[in-house]
């Protein structure tokens, strides 16, 4: 599966640059690359006997900002919010490490999951998505020897 958007990774050079100039190269070039305002949110995946749980870090959103879609075996999670404009109320920024605009991440689901019963809840800045597995009836059968 392909990545949903190009994600430039931090290199040791970035760190050197920041240590030396006191600001990140992304700031200088006007780029916005930190993991949390980037379109790919950090995600934990937990697997239990009966379900998978995704924990998508998405601080600063509202429940209504999210859309979770399943198309064939691809689960896509998207969120959009309006960015606050710098004005009187926000003041002057001394440090700006995050912004909120949008996030998007796709996941390829394995077989034997119950796509009808995927559920999601947003709590404390984390979107929890529960993907139940299909419980297959265990077949045990005694075979008589004729």
């Amino acid at each position: 599966m392909k990545s949903v958007s190009s994600n430039r990774t931090a290199t040791p050079f970035d760190k050197l640059f920041e240590d030396f100039f006191g600001t990140s190269i992304d700031n200088v070039l006007g780029r916005d690359m930190s993991p949390l305002n980037h379109r790919l949110p950090a995600t934990n995946i937990i697997e239990n006997d009966d379900a998978f749980t995704l924990e998508v870090s998405a601080p600063g959103f509202d429940k209504g900002d999210f859309s979770v879609n399943l198309e064939k075996d691809i689960l896509s999670i998207e969120a959009k919010t309006e960015e606050k404009k710098d004005d009187e109320s926000t003041g002057k920024f001394h440090l700006k490490e995050f912004r909120h605009r949008s996030l998007k991440r796709n996941f390829t689901l394995p077989e034997h999951i119950d796509g009808e019963n995927i559920s999601a809840k947003y709590e404390k800045g984390i979107l929890f998505v529960t993907i139940p597995k299909v419980v297959e009836p265990k077949i045990s059968k005694n075979i008589e020897i004729g």
Binding site: S57, P59, G91, K92, F98, K124, I126
Partner: peptide, 19 residues
Amino acid sequence: ATNISETKDGFTIDILVPG
């Protein structure tokens, strides 16, 4: 990640703390 902004009356520190 942290944003620090200054207005004429004070400062605001916003920290992302998911979870």
